[in-house]
Computed example of a mutant assay.
Amino acid sequence: MSLEVEQLDSIDAVNRNQWNSVVEQSELGCVFHRYEWLRAVEAGLDREPRHVLVSKKGNPIAVLPNFVAELGPVDQLKSIEPGYGGPIAMTDEERALELLLDAVADRCDGRILFNQFRTYDQEYVRYHNLLRERGYDVVVHSCRFTLDLTRGWDAILEGMHGERRRGIRRGREREFEVVEEPLTAAVLSDFHDDYARVMDRVGMDALPRSFLAELQRLEDRITVFSLRADGARRGMYLYVSDDEQSSFQHLYTAVTADHFEYRAPELLHEHAIRWAIDRGYKAYELRGSTPDFRNGVFSFKEYFGARPIPLLLWERGRPAPALSALNLGRTLSRRFGRS
């Protein structure tokens, strides 16, 4: 049975249920492949979509979401950011992947000199040789931190560094409560105010307010917890439920420096971990960091007893030699301390 390929200039061009069915039935599918997340990225970040879909007898069987992203004076086709992407297929795996990759090559035109797959699941290594044959190199620029929730809270607490356990204990010495906030425009706006301050403090660009506002589209997947103490909010965390991978992921932080005295990071993480255990999730994600034990973010997350897992990233130049120039630029940036 022949397979058909479509190049999509918006997620709006496909049937939501059919697209999500591919995500749910593909072993490597995750929440960031879902129609609703892609729609939020399109609407909230105003990034040009260049998605690819493979169908069989008129029914989608494989998808590869992509967005055009600026990379200095040129562009890059990414799958995807924010979030994780890469090709997924529910049947006819080899042929479907070949067609997806062929279509991606066609979609890299004009200023687009690179394309990249930012994958979440290490099981993507199953595609390593196929991607190498297509000219892709694999690199590790970051890692994620995972807690095994099947161990239960007591074992997780015991596995934490003493500093984290003390932080939880000291936070509990004063009156507080952790509240699940309603996912309203006002809450997301308040969240963005402090989130932007946090990103400024660590020298990173914040996602625009418009993107967080679009997360209301994922109401059944997004959870916001706030710490309440002394009659006010003392920090918030935003989470996404990745039911496809049975993980509860900490996405964004709105805990500013003045919230530290309330031990907001420790108490919010404790509450969220317990919440996820109660709902049967297998993993808790503290999200990313540079893969360097000397980095403060790396140490903070590792102290929760979380296991660092490399995030595999496949990329290639179009034309191929462009990647060598990009890697040279990265080396010089690291050497001279530039972002």
Rank of each mutant, 00 (worst) to 15 (best):
V125S: 14
T146M: 15
H141P: 09
R174Y: 05
R166T: 12
R132N: 09
F117W: 10
E180A: 11
C143E: 06
E175S: 04
R170G: 03
I112R: 04
L113H: 08
V139M: 12
V125Y: 00
F114V: 01
E180K: 14
E180G: 02
L113P: 03
V139N: 13
R172D: 06
V125N: 04
E177A: 14
D109R: 02
H141L: 15
D154E: 15
R164E: 12
C143P: 06
D121Q: 07
R111Y: 09
V140A: 00
D121G: 04
R132I: 10
D121K: 05
E177D: 12
R144H: 14
V179K: 12
E177M: 07
R132F: 02
E181D: 12
L131G: 00
V140H: 06
I168R: 03
E180P: 04
G159V: 02
V178K: 07
H128T: 07
H128R: 14
V138E: 13
E175V: 01
Y127L: 15
E158K: 13
I112T: 02
R174V: 01
F176Q: 06
Y124K: 05
R134D: 07
D137V: 09
R165T: 03
R151Y: 05
Y136K: 14
E163Q: 03
D109Q: 08
Y120R: 05
R164L: 06
I112N: 09
E181S: 09
H128Y: 13
E123R: 15
G159S: 14
D137A: 12
D121A: 11
N115P: 11
E133F: 02
D137Q: 03
S142E: 15
G171W: 02
F114S: 07
R164G: 07
R164C: 11
E175Y: 02
E133Y: 08
D121W: 10
N115S: 11
T146W: 05
F145I: 01
T150V: 07
I156N: 08
D154W: 07
H141W: 12
R118W: 09
R118S: 10
R172C: 11
D137F: 10
I168A: 10
Y127P: 00
F114G: 01
G162F: 01
S142L: 11
V179P: 04
L131F: 13
Y127C: 03
E173V: 07
R134H: 10
R144G: 01
L147Y: 01
E173Y: 05
L157R: 15
G110L: 10
E177V: 00
G171A: 09
M160P: 05
